[in-house]
Amino acid sequence: MVNDFDSASSKYDAEFTFSNIGKAQRRIVFKYLNPIIHQDKKLSILELNCGTGEDAIQFSKLGHHVIATDISEGMINVAKAKSKNVSFQIQDINTLHENSFETKFDVIFSNFGGFNCLSTTEIETFFKTASHLLHPNGKIVLVIMPKHCLWEKLYFSLKGDFKNAKRRQSTASVFANVDGIKVKTWYYNPEDILQRSKSSFKKENIKPIGFAIPPSYLEKSFLSKQPFLSILKSVDTIMTGSFWSKYADHFLIELTKL
């Protein structure tokens, strides 16, 4: 089956992964991941919505065993061409079940809004399944787009596009532009995720990703250039409290299995 993200796969790295904004936001994600992945123990990691595999490849370079999945065959083909050391697999997150893999995992990870493609019901189902896929005390780390991104409100308001300035605040799905593809998207604040995971997981950490660094669709603006980007990066080193998470472009939430 051809997936919407197949069309975006050939240019995804150029337009996001290796963009100035994409690299800056990924560095923040790894700052919070480092205490988990930089340890003597070699971890078993399941990555969901892996895209072109950039994170999975970094985990593999640290010696961890990684299975990385995505619904898009195009994304998986790009990822496979980049590394032979990761098991890349086509997988729809909504078809996961407790016997989907022959092993259990220490960490389940999903970066940059993959979970925004899931409805609230699908997220609740995922957490129930995930508890069976993890070892005791296993972790889930998700990077999700919240409802109140200040950059998005400012950008669209200045353009006079007040509908899109408020689009994240909808409880229903909206269509977001991903490299020219319209993708059905839901937005969640940290408390939404905590509410839907509380029966099986406890909160460990919530951090803003890109409070000052803007969304990737501003890559062609002066904000992604020096010295402006360096200034924005510096602001993000200060604005690290969980309070700011729902106002950032993304937030990272770390959960531990009960």
Rank of each mutant, 00 (worst) to 15 (best):
K257C: 03
G114S: 05
T120R: 14
S60N: 05
R27S: 11
M75R: 00
H250S: 11
S87A: 12
K128F: 06
S170K: 13
S230W: 04
A81F: 07
I57W: 03
N85M: 15
N3D: 15
F251G: 01
F211L: 15
K166Y: 12
K182N: 03
H148D: 13
Q58L: 11
Y12K: 06
H250Q: 00
P146I: 14
L33T: 06
E122G: 01
N20S: 11
K80S: 13
N177M: 08
R167Y: 12
K203W: 03
P227K: 02
L142A: 09
Y247Q: 02
S10E: 13
P215G: 06
W151Y: 14
F5M: 12
S83Q: 10
E98V: 05
V2G: 00
F115K: 06
L194E: 07
I238Y: 09
Q91V: 12
I67L: 03
V183C: 08
I108L: 06
K31T: 12
A56R: 02
S131V: 02
F222L: 08
I21N: 15
A68K: 05
A24P: 08
L150E: 13
S72N: 07
F112T: 04
I123F: 13
F109E: 12
S197D: 07
Y217C: 02
L43W: 02
P190R: 00
D179T: 10
K41V: 15
F126Q: 02
S230C: 01
E124I: 10
T103A: 10
E15N: 05
K147Q: 14
F109Q: 03
F228H: 15
N116S: 12
G74W: 01
S221V: 01
S230F: 00
L154R: 15
R26V: 11
F101K: 01
E54R: 09
S200A: 14
I36K: 12
S19N: 11
V2K: 15
I181D: 11
A81P: 02
L223D: 11
V183R: 01
R26F: 13
D192Q: 07
E191V: 15
F18G: 05
S119D: 08
K61W: 00
D161V: 00
K147Y: 09
G138Q: 01
I209Q: 09
H250E: 07
